[in-house]
Design a protein around this nucleic acid. Structure first.
Lengths: 217, 217, 217, 217
DNA sequence: TATGAATGAGAGTTCATTCAT
DNA sequence: TATGAATGAACTCTCATTCAT
């Protein structure tokens, strides 16, 4: 009986992915609110009722979608960082991987970016919290790498968490404008060098501090 | 008769602001879709029909709100930048002013940040385009300052527009997490130095290029 | 003081007519429900509140409009019929006058025709009854003429009221299609002969009865 | 599976008819605008949303209602006319059938008559055009019969289309007053003879033309 | 007396979710 | 287990009418 059960589970998972895939395409095009369950059902070629066998409700489906992708990204990031030696290289790898992943998951990242700096209703709701934690895990990962670099003497003494947020912002906005381009020009990974340079030089041990912006506003 | 008409106009404008203020508070808390016109009417202490004397529809109200604030910000930015000499100082001022403005307009910036990297439906719609242009004007302003700095020899030769986007991303994400804090700790302007340092050092003429992240992913 | 009061009354009546004229144009174009009081106010160049000084409400205005025109028509009809000798000639005059009046009051007759075989809500309502009675007065007038003709031996013995309704139907449908023509071709009075001929020959003393339509349906 | 699908379709059609029936009753009593979708839903014993599974919107429902009935009438008319020999008999049959149908579809004909000489908004709208064409098809049918009669020497040389309109007007107004009677007295078909006589004698080859109504108005 | 901004009930329509089949 | 018709609350927006000025 076990192999039978296994097959069932595999099929279940396959269906779930089909639904998520249809949802991803629609959410990315129209956003959460302008996408209806009926649309998703039609796109996924399932009956509306069936969607509710896989997801508690629309919000759950949305969160599950984001969650699964962010988890995949997290796995990728961790795997590649492990192979790098210095904090500098690790962060460079992080930047590269994230942009590459966005490159290959345009639809999803349209959602991701909106979401990241987006819907408070999500952040606050019980479900949203799950995604929020995943986001924070990424920020914390970078923050740790920065900390590591500070201790190694690679970077100067900066507020690691703030700096981590700044990096995420740079990545998001870079991804964002690239995603908005209707026929995407070039690949997103090409931008990796720029971000790496700004960020790593920006927090590198500097011979002299930048002196700017001291007049009251 | 003219003074009478003037008073009417003043009162009209005052009411409009009351409505926008109520809308700002609600949109910032619940987002565009989860805020109903009825909610706004109650909050603004007007009848629902009255809202439609001031705004064509819900979207128009939302866009008007964003537009007016972004325009105000733009005016502030331009005014303060004019007083600075080098590109470096100008950008530093830009960073400081934007964070300070967010500091003083928490509700609005919750909307702003969501919006910025957000709703495609807004970007695409006729109204949204107006706001989108204002956003882009800000990006272009920074891009020009960067260009100026490159020519002055303050910065190295970077893609000014990409770099401008990166800065906006940093600012947005910094503002975002600060805004999310429920009892806001400290002031947002305190973060200005960090952003200034990362960004300006990040694009400064470097004695040595950063060498990182060349392994294939 | 009396002349002053008279002038006031004259002015009042003039304003009333201006409003009715604006209303006529709009009601005829869009119908009762699709015409708003705001539209009428703008068209009449009065403030909305002013309309309510002249008419109790929208329905009252509508009914007043129909009433005044139908009364005018009734006066015209009575005046011209008085000059004719036989029932035949009187009915012919009736037909001619009505078509001529429609010819010169296109806007109104668009309303009239809709109304005649139209809104039961009007017929049933307290106001509608006033108009309904005016309509019936016209039918009764024709019925009396027919009766007169029967007694004179001009017409055969028909149910005068039913026949009167039939004539009104013919007139209305003839007016209706003519009114619908967007650039009106020819004049409506030209159709008078046809109607006169059909109707008067139709109820004339016939040498032989029409034999038709006796099979069960 | 086919029988199952068939049953579903039957049930679907049955529900559609239930809704149309409720709508017919309400539209006929209160007219299009004074009948709300909520009223119809309650009367049809369905939820409001359900109505929209069967009809795109309120207008579509209304038009569908009129259309289906008018089409049924058209089929009936064509069937019965086919069995008659002379133009005279055919027109007599047309009159009889239409009055009989109105007799048996009081509610609907209250709508029909209003509609016929009524709502321009309907005539102009995309949907209304469909109904308008059906009306015109009926007029054209009669016009052709008249033409036939003229060529056969049954009728004198009249403008067939104008005459067809006149007949429709007679029928409509006859139906109209009968429908308005609150407890209906007698049957409507009884009036058929009168209309037949007036119309057929009215356009019959006359030994002498009617001479009337030549004085200027 | 004339104004027109304010009102708020009520309209048509949508859509996440349920449940009998 | 899968279905999709049915649900009905909630939405945005309209407009006849009122009333303070």
């Amino acid at each position: 009986m076990t192999p039978r059960v296994q097959r069932k589970q595999r099929e279940h998972e396959a269906r779930r992915q089909e639904i998520l895939s249809a949802a991803e395409s629609l959410f990315s095009k129209h956003g959460f609110f302008k996408t209806s369950m009926a649309d998703i059902a039609i796109n996924a070629q399932f009956a509306m009722g069936t969607l509710y066998r896989f997801f508690k409700n629309k919000e759950d489906m949305y969160i599950s979608l984001v969650e699964s992708k962010v988890e995949e990204l997290e796995r990728l990031v961790k795997k590649h960082i492990a192979g790098e030696s210095t904090a500098c290289h690790k962060i460079a790898a992080f930047i590269r991987i994230k942009l590459d992943y966005a490159d290959r998951n345009r639809d999803f990242f349209r959602i991701y970016v909106s979401e990241w700096s987006g819907f408070e209703w999500t952040v606050k709701s019980a479900f949203g919290e799950r995604v929020w934690k995943l986001y924070m895990a990424q920020v914390d990962l970078v923050a740790e790498l920065v900390q590591e670099g500070i201790q190694n003497g690679e970077f100067r003494d900066v507020a690691s968490r703030d700096v981590a947020f700044a990096l995420h912002g740079m990545l998001n906005s870079t991804m964002y404008i690239w995603i908005l381009q209707c026929p995407p020009t070039g690949s997103l990974v090409e931008k990796a060098h720029l971000i790496q340079n700004i960020f790593l030089q920006g927090i590198a041990k500097s011979q002299r501090d930048v002196k700017a912006g001291h007049s009251a506003i």
